[in-house]
Design a protein around this nucleic acid. Structure first.
Length: 981
RNA sequence: GCAGAGGUACCCGAGUUGGUCAAAGGGGCCGGACUUAAGCUCCGGUGCAUAGUGCUUCGCAGGUUCAAAUCCUGCCCUCUGCACCA
């Protein structure tokens, strides 16, 4: 049973306040008081608590989440786009009857708060609190439907105590490690960085060049999960580029670890290679200049100084120099030799600037015969080249440049049984031989490193560990959590480093093992740790006994977050950490799911115009608009580039809301581009969307004040409603928001306008149409939709209702009324074009249109053709035979014309397909139903006449009147001959 | 160099299981209606031709097909990520 969706006897008061102004009554477009409307509904929603949800196993759940923001002050347009997408989907899924979890929180630990605190000599805590209040107010102003009860900030002890709690559990499980390691250090930020946070050897945050330091650091053993992280990428619904980036980052490569013993020494050089099948082609080894063995090998020899020079050069090089220098491969001999474990050959050892210390073992077995880089190196230093793979079976291995680096057949092995093996078989044979002789083994190498977790910063989660002189490194006991950050800390530019390190009160602790004094760890956690599990906390935000209740998490997280929306910049870091974390907590028994995110949508860039110099190919700050290029003095043009502070081409959401209202901003954002696509900011497009919204307001105003009289158009309107809503539901379900909004905010309006133009005016139909329309508008423009809903007397709130039932419409066959209207539209369209042409042949203005519809035998033929086409009749082979047996075909004089018509209907010509293939279902129904074109045209003659701006329209079947302008011959079923007088 | 995404009319942008595609929608521009007047709203136009179903077009060049924006091959260009990764 369809749910009743209207209260009876409602009078319409839609925006009656607006009509007070005498000016407005003249203006045909209604505008509305956005602030009043938006405030009113935001208040109503909040009071009715419609967005508050709880676990309810009887309903399907939908977890809609946006990457929570770092609170840096006011909300910016990128946020607006992110949340407008999420909110539309959350609201849509609620309408679809889902139990929707849609939370918001703040990722509030991090460096910027420290810097701000220094600037104003305050505390990061107060800076953060203030910023959270600002961004939250902005979010509320946009009307986002969050369950605010679940809100939290990660910088509160209520949250970060669970960071610590889980850290200790990871520690117990052996996932935490403290070790000395060469780390990436940023002088500006005064802290180490994880590998993921170094971009082109620069700090991801401040851009300063990263230097290497050796320090004791805390690691999370993410590499334990490397395989699973890689393999499950195939199963999850991430965009391809994100998957590619993660695969790239994890960088699994399969190969062999091979030990080369150093001649005249006990040392062994382990090398990783993906091509063990080329082992017989090794003619030298290359170590990274930093390799510890280098020093040992050259110490006290004539080679020492050259090596030292190379090592120092590599160590002090800036990034720019390094890139430049690496165009040239450079190396020095170390004066020693290593023994190839399979061939027994002794090959020279080099140090090379191109060998990366941190990848693999920092040593490369060089095969110049089959590796381009090794080949170039060998040629430069006069080292021999030995090809050991052939392109063909039983072929030769030849030295060539560029080298052959594909898989081939082994040859020139100086041991039995290897020659003739190919590709993977060859690799396996070599590995088995190495394993049998204890000189190597098959192995997998990852580019992914363990997660370097510790930061030497204040504003983060304190790592809950203690340093005891007697017991060493000891975990804080679970009962002593949280280890809180002290609030009585002053920040200033003079003090560099971590204030925790000098805070006596914080530092002093008691060792839980021996009871003596201990020193607290002063490193805090990388803030990516905070965001690696926040989505699970949202399932149970206010739990004070544990991070989250497993039952709640398992309900909400089943299959992962259903829709996760955020920026592509987190493709590797956040998304990889969170995936790892979820698997780790799963293995601790805290949750069932292993992959945190189901469908991931990465919103596109938001661009805005900025001055641009074509010649210099660079963009400038907006203050240069109208001026000349600061670089070359040439004329500046405009280009759309990513919105950002550096160019000043930002748009303030607050200003836009004040000017046009939240609904217009949301409509613009959603209509401007699909979520994944980049989008350009345009003031004129924003204004156009505002006009569109005002037109809709106008439609509702007219629609609820109508004199009622039924007509055929009512069925048409309901048919359009059914079609639109079906397509809308599909589009929205697929997160194709642009398409969804196009239907709900554009096509619905133009259908409404056509209905009105055609004289539609029936209150029950209109009510039905408008109330469904109000629902369809709710995800994108919720405030105005709610206003419409109320004015129509709808029950409850659109925000909490499920979509009203329209299945009663779908049982009816609307194709004929749709086709008939389409016929009329097409007729007017072609007549309009023809009229222009006809006018050229006439000296006096055209006043009359004559429409000659096709003769009945043509309609009969069409009927036969359509009927046959429904049975998958093969017109090509059997069509002519069928035609010849028809009664009409008996008239010999007409056979030529009949044949032509039949062919046009069925087989078509080379260039045009037969009508049975091109007619829509509705058109076919018209043909089958013996659609009376003449009477439809005559019935609508005055409408057609006014559309075409002529006086009279007459229609008759060919032969029933004068053949004006000889148009009888072109008449065809559904394509009448049209002439103008 | 490797990987991923792309190149559609003045602009943005849909369309890519081949056919109803001269190609949705929006912006801009143009015309008409309404109006004292519009920056509002409504109707229409916006490749060329034409009293009609014709021609040319979807980065460039070929190919498959009765039929290509859509499929295949090669090339050019743009964006993004990774990069002496062994």
């Amino acid at each position: 049973m369809p749910r009743p969706y209207l209260r009876s006897g409602q009078s319409c008061q839609l925006f009656s306040k607006e009509t007070k102004s005498p000016r407005v009554t003249e203006v045909r477009t209604m505008s509305y008081n956005t602030h009043e409307v938006e405030n009113k509904w935001q208040r109503t929603w909040s009071e009715a608590r419609v967005f508050e949800v709880e676990v309810d196993p009887s309903k399907p759940k939908f977890y809609c989440l946006e990457m929570f923001p770092y609170p840096s002050g006011n909300m910016h347009m990128g946020h607006v786009r992110n949340y407008s997408i999420g909110d539309a989907m959350a609201r849509f899924q609620r309408m679809m009857g889902k139990n929707v979890l849609y939370p918001m929180g703040y990722d509030s630990f991090g460096m910027p708060a420290e810097n701000a605190a220094k600037k104003e000599a305050g505390h990061p805590h107060s800076v953060t609190e203030r910023n959270i209040a600002m961004i939250r107010a902005d979010q509320e102003r946009m009307g986002y439907s969050y369950d605010w009860r679940r809100m939290f900030a990660t910088s509160t002890p209520e949250y970060y105590r669970w960071n610590q709690n889980m850290f200790l559990k990871f520690f117990e499980a052996g996932l935490v490690e403290r070790r000395f390691a060469p780390v990436n250090w940023c002088n500006d930020c005064d802290t180490v960085l994880a590998n993921e946070q170094v971009k082109n050897n620069r700090c991801w945050r401040c851009g300063l060049e990263v230097v290497q330091k050796d320090m004791a650091q805390w690691f999370l053993r993410m590499t334990e999960y490397a395989d699973e992280l890689l393999e499950e990428l195939d199963k999850i619904e991430f965009p391809e580029n994100v998957k590619a980036m993660q695969r790239n980052w994890i960088g699994r490569s399969q190969g062999a670890h091979i030990d080369f013993s150093v001649v005249g020494s006990d040392s062994v050089i382990g090398a990783f290679t993906t091509r063990p099948d080329t082992i017989f082609g090794v003619t030298f080894l290359t170590l990274s200049p930093e390799h510890p063995l280098c020093e040992e090998l050259v110490s006290g020899t004539e080679y020492e100084s050259a090596w030292l020079e190379l090592r120092n050069e590599c160590a002090r090089m800036t990034e720019f120099e390094r890139i430049n220098m690496l165009k040239e491969k450079k190396g020095v001999p170390l004066g020693r030799f290593a023994k190839n474990p399979l061939s027994g050959e002794e090959v020279p050892i080099y140090a090379g600037n191109f060998v990366v210390a941190s990848y693999g073992t920092g040593a490369v077995m060089a095969v110049p015969g089959h590796d381009q880089r090794d080949y170039d190196f060998a040629k430069k230093y006069g080292i021999s080249v030995r090809p050991v793979l052939s392109r063909e079976r039983d072929g030769e291995a030849i030295e060539e440049n560029p080298v052959f680096d594909g898989l081939g057949w082994m040859i020139n092995s100086n041991r039995e049984s290897f020659d003739g093996l190919h590709g993977n078989e060859a690799k396996e044979a070599v590995i088995s031989a190495l394993e049998a002789e204890g000189t190597g083994h098959g192995t997998v190498q990852f580019r992914l490193k363990d997660w370097l977790l510790s930061r030497q910063r204040f504003w983060g989660t304190p790592i809950p560990m203690l340093h005891c002189d007697d017991c060493g490194v000891v975990p804080v006991s679970l009962d002593d959590l949280p280890v809180e950050l002290p609030l009585d800390v002053k920040f200033s530019w003079e003090d560099s480093g971590n204030p925790l390190a000098t805070n006596q009160e914080f530092l002093e602790a008691t060792c839980p093992q021996c009871g003596k004094n201990a020193r607290r760890e002063t490193d805090t956690m990388d803030t990516f740790y905070d965001s690696s599990w926040y989505f699970m906390r949202f399932a149970d935000s206010n739990n004070i006994a544990r991070p989250f209740d497993p039952d709640k998490v398992n309900y909400w997280m089943e299959g992962g977050v259903d829709l996760y929306i955020g920026g592509i910049e987190h493709a590797v870091m956040h998304l990889l950490y969170a995936r790892f974390f979820t698997k780790a907590t799963r293995d601790l028994g805290m949750n069932l799911v292993g992959e945190p995110f189901g469908r991931l949508v990465c919103q596109g860039m938001l661009n805005a115009p900025a001055p641009f110099c074509v010649k210099c190919n660079s963009e400038y700050h907006v203050e240069n608009f109208g001026g000349d290029c600061p670089n070359c003095g040439g004329k500046l043009s405009t280009r759309s580039v990513k919105m950002g502070k550096s160019l000043g081409n930002t748009i303030s959401p607050g200003d836009m809301i004040s000017k046009f209202g939240a609904d217009t901003v949301r409509l613009f954002i959603l209509f401007g581009a699909n979520p994944e696509a980049g989008m350009d900011w345009s003031d004129s497009a924003l204004e156009a969307n505002n006009r569109q919204l005002n037109q809709i307001v106008d439609a509702f105003k007219i629609g609820s004040n109508i004199k009622s009289s039924p007509s055929d158009m009512d069925n048409w309107l309901l048919a359009r409603l059914l079609d639109n809503r079906t397509r809308w539901t599909e589009a929205m379900d697929d997160v194709s928001l642009r398409e969804g909004v196009m239907i709900s905010h554009f096509e619905m309006l133009s259908d409404w306008q056509w209905y009105r133009r055609r004289g539609g005016s029936h209150a029950p139909t209109i009510n039905r149409f408008l109330s469904s329309w109000a629902e369809m508008m709710a995800p994108a423009t919720p405030h105005i939709a709610e206003e419409f809903w109320e004015s129509l007397g709808g029950l409850g709130l659109v925000a909490s209702n499920t979509l009203s039932e329209i299945s009663d419409l779908s049982v009816r066959d609307w194709s004929e009324i749709l086709a008939s209207e389409e016929y009329l539209r097409d007729l007017i369209d072609s007549a309009r074009n023809l009229k222009v042409l006809a006018q050229k042949h006439s000296d006096i203005p055209i006043t009359k249109m004559v429409v000659q519809t096709a003769l009945s035998w043509k309609a009969e033929l069409a009927y036969e053709a359509v009927k046959l086409s429904r049975t998958n009749f093969d017109f090509k082979t059997k069509g002519q035979e069928y035609l010849k047996n028809l009664k009409i075909f008996e008239k010999e004089s007409m056979r030529g014309e009949i044949f032509q018509t039949w062919m046009a209907m069925t087989a078509g010509s080379k260039k045009k397909r037969g009508r049975v293939n091109t007619w829509s279902e509705g058109q076919k129904n018209l043909v089958l139903g013996h659609f009376d074109e003449t009477s439809v045209i005559n019935k609508n003659s005055s409408f057609i006449a006014s559309s075409l701006q002529i006086d009279t329209v007459v229609s008759y079947s060919v032969g029933d009147g004068e053949d004006v302008a000889g148009k009888a011959k072109v008449s065809f079923p559904l394509e009448p001959g049209i002439s103008f007088i």
